[in-house]
């Protein structure tokens, strides 16, 4: 029963992705991406990752606010059609080739449901699970990995977030800097 719900969720996410790609209305596409996000957070719950599910839900809400800000009250939300025909055919053929090559690679992976880290006895995750509480005192193992064992990741994440804010602020200044050819007009 649980597995059936899981597969139904996966089908829901895939259908939402197809609609988001192919619909012509931009607002509908944004809402379908929101549906992918919420379905994805339920999938995270089924995969026993409650931290990720919680973060995914709240991030999805803020992301939808940002996306709707971009798409609402714009005139040209109905751009239909693809790029020129020849380029589209070439890119679709290349994508299909990548897909067939990738399917071959997925056969070599271990089966779904056997955690990969259990196959190597010296994996880092073995230490995190068995000695995480003992060495850091945090009962949430994910938090102990984020803030103690691998805190450099968090430092880098803070840096990247800072850089992206600086980028967005610089792009959206009140007065845009004039390009050289604009001064000639």
């Amino acid at each position: 029963m649980e597995l059936f719900i899981f597969y139904a969720l996966m089908a829901f996410v895939l259908i939402a992705a197809f609609i988001a790609v192919e619909t012509r209305n931009l607002l509908s596409a944004v809402i379908c991406v929101g549906a992918i996000g919420f379905g994805g957070s339920l999938i995270f719950l089924f995969l026993k990752a409650p931290d990720i599910a919680m973060t995914q839900i709240v991030v999805e809400v803020l992301g939808l606010v940002i996306l709707i800000r971009a798409t609402i009250s714009r005139d040209l939300t109905f751009i239909s059609g693809d790029r020129e025909f020849f380029g589209m055919v070439v890119s679709v053929v290349i994508l299909f080739a990548i897909f067939m090559a990738g399917i071959g690679i997925f056969r070599q992976l271990p089966d779904f449901g056997t955690a990969v880290y259990t196959r190597t006895p010296e994996a880092a995750s073995q230490t995190y699970v068995s000695r995480g509480l003992e060495e850091t005192g945090a009962s949430n193992i994910v938090t102990s990995v984020i803030l103690d064992f691998r805190a450099y990741d968090t430092l880098g994440e803070a840096t990247v977030l800072f850089a992206s804010i600086i980028g967005a602020t610089a792009i959206l200044r009140k007065k845009a800097k004039k390009l050289p050819e604009d001064l000639d007009e």
Binding site: L47, K48, A49, D51, I52, T55, A115, V116, Y117, A124, S125, Y128, V129, G132, I141, V142, V145, I146, R150, D153, T154, G156, E157
Partner: peptide, 12 residues
């Protein structure tokens, strides 16, 4: 226990 390391990476 499931693997905590990918969860930590995906969280960031």
């Amino acid at each position: 226990c499931v693997d905590p390391l990918p969860q930590a990476l995906v969280l960031t």
